[in-house]
Design a protein around this nucleic acid. Structure first.
Lengths: 411, 411
DNA sequence: AATTGTTTTTAAATTTTTTTATAAAACAAT
DNA sequence: ATTGTTTTATAAAAAAATTTAAAAACAATT
């Protein structure tokens, strides 16, 4: 009932051959099936895995004995003798997801059945590219784990979302904490003592939305993270697309304008320079200086203190200036996304990130520009929706990525 | 020695269960392995398929008896007893690839080991969206098949490349021959009598280049077809990417310019309006009219008769005007492709299509713009090369697509 | 030229899996 | 309450696959 870690060890061992290998492989397939499709009967598993009933039964019983799988009783539908339903045992494994923002950290703990059992949001933290900042981050993670009631050895992995270029395969970060020779994931791992994966923030959010949010059967989906910058997670054939080094999806830096605004990436004319949350904040302040009025000034007497969240809040309270500027940004984002539609022919584009909280204020101008600038035959295929998970997408995605990587045969 | 069609029938039958199913599945894996990796020993197969030597040996012997696999004798490397090498029997299956251009058709016949056994290039043909034009196309294909020395039943499929929007899964074409209720592939199939697949021209070329051209181990590759229009084939994780309906890769119609040139797609400002072969031809004629000089005028006394091929030929003969205009187009294409690099983080971009015959005249300005407009960290990952198959990419790709679809378990 | 070492191939024994048959469970109709 | 139908679960028999052992093939060495 408690030998669960054994299975994950032998899952990733390369020593196994022949029958032993096949059995582990089949058990992995069963867990994956439970994880993706929910509970199932022995007959279901037998059918999808092309194994006989007795064999399937034997392996399910092994997983049951390992404590990874739980008997969920009889089904209630259908005629004839009712089968037992099996599914993942929620308490058999846990995963930690960490979302690192510029000014705070969000952390969540997820069980094996993708329920968030504990979350801690808005932990004050200053993201700097320094050793101290990294150290503080590790401390925050350790504190979170230590104050949770779950046994340490049941926490199988940690997923950390960072902005910028991340190579999850090697564990290297290229935008933050890139001052060590070893990959960042190994550094954190050695401090916290739990297997750690790094991921790009937008891609992790995308994965959360794919697996637990507004995605049903769609297999080719784009998730656009509209925040301070503009990021994207790409799902191709039901899987995240990384590109060669994990840098795919840099939609914020596609060349779009002939302006002279210098982007933080070093180039000029990037989409981000005129259409990101940062650009919106900049333009908002400029308009105020030019004499425009807004309800934001009631809250922030010094215009320098205005942050993106203030503008989003103002828009949702019908502030004309905020809505106007967000609409203008939406049109530009939509023109950029027309390119995405033409290139990816996606079934669904999900708008996420803090700006997505403005709902139709951002969605409609984007949809409009999409209709205007993309091939209509292709555009007709594409749904445009707002993230269902909202600000939970990041930690849910981070946890699920860890879970699903540990279940994957190729680690 | 001649019951080869049997296997392909049972491969796609859904009747099989249990051991029979698994055996067919394993044999399919073996054929796929031979097709992708070349000849192999029983030990190799046993290792990659995780089956025991006796079982592997038994199945190889069945394939041998079916005539699909051939004994290629002993290996010459290594110590110890030398194993037998097995591989595909070239004469056991054939595939026809048809490339439909605006003014001509190219057809090729490929054997099971991807050798082109017969090609017929430049068959005069006028592509119109009419019933007669479709009928003529079918006749050309039938003639080609009938004049080949291969038995009809050994030709397992036909692949047809068309420009425009194609949904290969349904067999519908949306740009040409779209006047029937039934899918176009079924119409052609019923005339020619052989299983027919439709594919977008650029995607088929891309597949040819991926499988038989300049792609080694790269798994994320873009193939850009620079011709009259600008098309693209996308390879993600070693497989073609289609998007929801097979319209992915429409790079020619991404919004790039604020010009007033109406694209044939109906929009303004598409990349194609200023950077395609059609645009180059238009600009070339305009410059001539403005008084510029070129060696093309020696060949074509009436400027109206000038075609893209003339300009390409002129460039390769150091004609300044041609080179100049191609360079300008290259810079614009490169700026558009910078977006591709940022979004896909590809390992390799291959330039194909007739314009790629100008070699570095088109490649270098593209490379230059790529360096200028894409994120340098991402761009550093990306190789930019010229197609190795040249004008053979289309028919090779069409044949290989048919072959590999027939080998795939999900047809 | 015989011996040794290495590896493939074949053959026999053993293990594993599937198939078939049977029992048990669940429920509807008689 | 009994009978029939349908499906699951278990047990025994049959089939199939793997494992182990032995033989065959060949290169390098003595």
């Amino acid at each position: 009932m408690a030998t669960n870690t054994n299975f994950f060890e032998e899952l990733h061992s390369t020593e196994l051959t022949g029958v032993a290998y096949k059995n582990v492989w089949l058990k992995k397939q069963m867990l994956t099936h439970f994880a993706n499709e929910g509970n199932a009967t022995v007959a279901d598993l037998s059918r999808t895995l092309n194994t006989s009933i007795p064999k399937t039964s034997e392996l399910v019983n092994e997983l049951l004995a390992d404590g990874l799988v739980k008997d969920y009783g009889k089904t209630d539908s259908g005629v004839g003798r009712k089968p037992n339903l099996y599914g993942l045992e929620p308490a058999s494994a846990f995963f930690v997801g960490v979302e690192v923002k510029n000014l705070h950290v969000n952390i969540g703990l997820m069980d094996f059945r993708r329920s968030l059992v504990k979350t801690s949001r808005g932990i004050p933290y200053l993201l700097n590219n320094t050793e101290e900042s990294l150290h503080t981050l590790c401390t925050i993670v350790c504190d979170f784990i230590n104050t949770s009631s779950v046994q340490l050895e049941k926490i199988l992995g940690i997923g950390i979302n960072l902005t910028g270029r991340i190579n999850y395969r090697t564990g290297y970060s290229y935008s933050f904490f890139n001052f060590h020779e070893d990959p960042l994931s190994k550094i954190i791992e050695s401090v916290v003592g739990i297997h750690t994966y790094l991921e790009n923030d937008s891609r992790a959010m995308a994965y959360g939305e794919f697996c637990s949010g507004g995605v049903k059967d769609e297999k080719n989906v784009l998730f656009v993270n509209l925040d301070h910058g503009i990021g994207m997670g790409i799902m191709v054939g039901g899987q995240l697309y990384y590109g060669k080094s994990g840098f795919a999806g840099e939609v914020g830096h596609i060349p779009m304008f002939n302006n002279e605004i210098l982007c933080h990436c070093g180039k000029k004319g990037c989409l981000e320079t005129e259409a990101s949350g940062a650009a919106i904040t900049r333009i908002f302040k400029e308009r105020l200086a030019e004499g425009a009025s807004s309800i934001v000034t009631n809250k922030r007497t010094n215009p320098e203190d205005i942050v993106l969240e203030d503008i989003i809040e103002a828009a949702n309270n019908d502030d004309t200036l905020a809505i106007e500027i967000i609409t203008e940004a939406g049109e530009k984002i939509g023109k950029g996304m027309a390119t995405l539609v033409n290139l990816f022919n996606p079934e669904l584009i999900i708008l996420g990130g803090s700006l997505s909280a403005t709902g139709d204020y951002i969605r409609l101008p984007i949809k409009n520009a999409l209709n205007k600038y993309s091939l209509s035959l292709v555009n007709n295929d594409t749904q445009l929706s707002i993230s269902q998970l909202g600000d939970k997408a990041g930690i849910i995605g981070a946890c699920l990525l860890v879970r699903d990587r540990l279940l994957a045969i190729t680690s």
